Simulated scan of single mutants.
Amino acid sequence: MVKIGNINLGDFPLLLAPMEDVSDPPFRAVCKENGADLMYTEFISSEGLIRDAIKSRQKLDIFDYERPVGIQIFGGDEEPMAMAAQIAAATNPDLVDINYGCPVKKVTCKGAGAGILKDIPKMVRLTAAVVKSTNLPVTVKTRLGWDDDSRNIEEVAERLQDVGIQAITIHGRTRTQMYKGNADWTLISKVKNNPHIKIPVFGNGDICTPEQAVAARAKYGVDGIMIGRAAIGYPWIFNEIKHFMRTGEHLPPPTVLERVRVCKKHLHHSVAWKGDVVGILEMRRHYTNYLKGLPHIKDFRLQLVTCKTLAEVEQVLDTIAVQYKDHIFERTTPQITNSNYLPANNEMVDCNVYG
């Protein structure tokens, strides 16, 4: 049984990754409905919380149906991070997570996100400050290291455990890789199998199919898996993995009616949380993935991204449901290598497994 503090996550939890401009409450709602065991907010700037920035404060919104849910914060200075953790804790999440993995230059140049991987002693001090600032469990998401010459995740995991973190998620790339190339799970496995590591170790990177999840569990022994891009427009991935782990069989791919139903639910959550204008606008990034695999869908997608009212969007979605009601989705599986479950041609996996 995997536990973070007093949070019981079951035998092999599937975590939804915190993704900027993606994993907001509307998206988390449909992922929870479809089997996500633990979810996180989009990452939140510690400086933004202290300044009471509206965007940062809005990201603190969490709802009881999401639980367990963690608030993820990032920053490069101890005092603001400790204060941000206290502000986050006041909204009553189940845990606080520290982002040491974001590779974006505007974050790393401030010594935050993956930028702190250049200064491990500072990383330890900052983590200790956050742990001391709250009674909630503190977890960390990070990468293998800054570059291939500093793949120091084994040392990092031990030192962060020593100052009190209660779980760690490791993305199997360095910062300099960004999201390119193959995720390397071998170092994640070394952390998990280190006899000094007592906290849960979750793996992250390029898990897009049930087969990959099962293989990662068997080969690398991680306590659970964090899924990011594979869930965008395809929240069914969580239940599909769970079913495959239990039975060795695949669930049938969601029908057009099911895709439209979940897309509508996502849309309604978006409008309820953000208002009509912003809610409709920000849903536009999701339609392509929800409708992936439907032939000659381009004209309908164009309509969806130009609709201005909820009624207009729903009318287009209803038309799609009727016109494609007899479409049968076929399952497509990426070619998998023996080492780390990625295509042999070293290209990025198309994480939407049905099309």
Results as ranks from 00 to 15, higher is better:
Gln166Ser: 12
His171Asn: 12
Leu257Asp: 13
Val262Trp: 03
Ser270Asp: 09
Phe300Tyr: 15
Ile120Gly: 05
Ile44Pro: 04
Leu9Asn: 00
Leu15Gly: 02
Val277Cys: 12
Pro195Cys: 09
Ile153Tyr: 01
Ala230Met: 08
Glu258Lys: 15
Thr288Met: 05
His327Cys: 11
Asn346Cys: 12
Ser339Val: 14
Asn193Pro: 03
Glu79Asp: 13
Phe329Cys: 02
His296Ser: 14
Leu187Asp: 06
Gln86Arg: 15
Ala218Trp: 03
Asp184His: 10
Glu282His: 09
Arg285Val: 10
Tyr341Gly: 02
Asn152Met: 08
Phe202Cys: 08
Gln72His: 10
Leu14Met: 15
Asn345Tyr: 08
Asp162Pro: 01
Val107Asn: 00
Val104Asp: 01
Ala215Trp: 11
Asp119Phe: 07
Pro13Phe: 08
Gly113His: 03
Ala129Val: 06
Pro25Asn: 05
Glu249Leu: 12
Ile188Asn: 00
Gly70Trp: 01
Glu42His: 11
Leu310Lys: 11
Thr91Pro: 03
Gly145Met: 03
Ala114Tyr: 01
Glu330Val: 10
Ala231Tyr: 09
Ile336Trp: 05
Ala321Glu: 09
Phe300Asn: 09
Asn352Ser: 10
Leu294Asp: 08
Ile153Lys: 00
Asp94Lys: 06
Arg285Ser: 11
Asp149Tyr: 14
Leu16Trp: 03
Arg217Ala: 10
Ile280His: 00
Ala231Phe: 09
Val140Ala: 04
Val271Arg: 01
Tyr179Ile: 08
Val69His: 00
Lys105Arg: 15
Met81Gln: 07
Leu16Ile: 10
Met178Tyr: 14
Val130Ser: 04
Leu144Cys: 09
Asp94Thr: 02
Ala88Pro: 04
Ile62Met: 04
Met348Lys: 09
Leu15Lys: 01
Pro18Phe: 04
Cys263Ser: 13
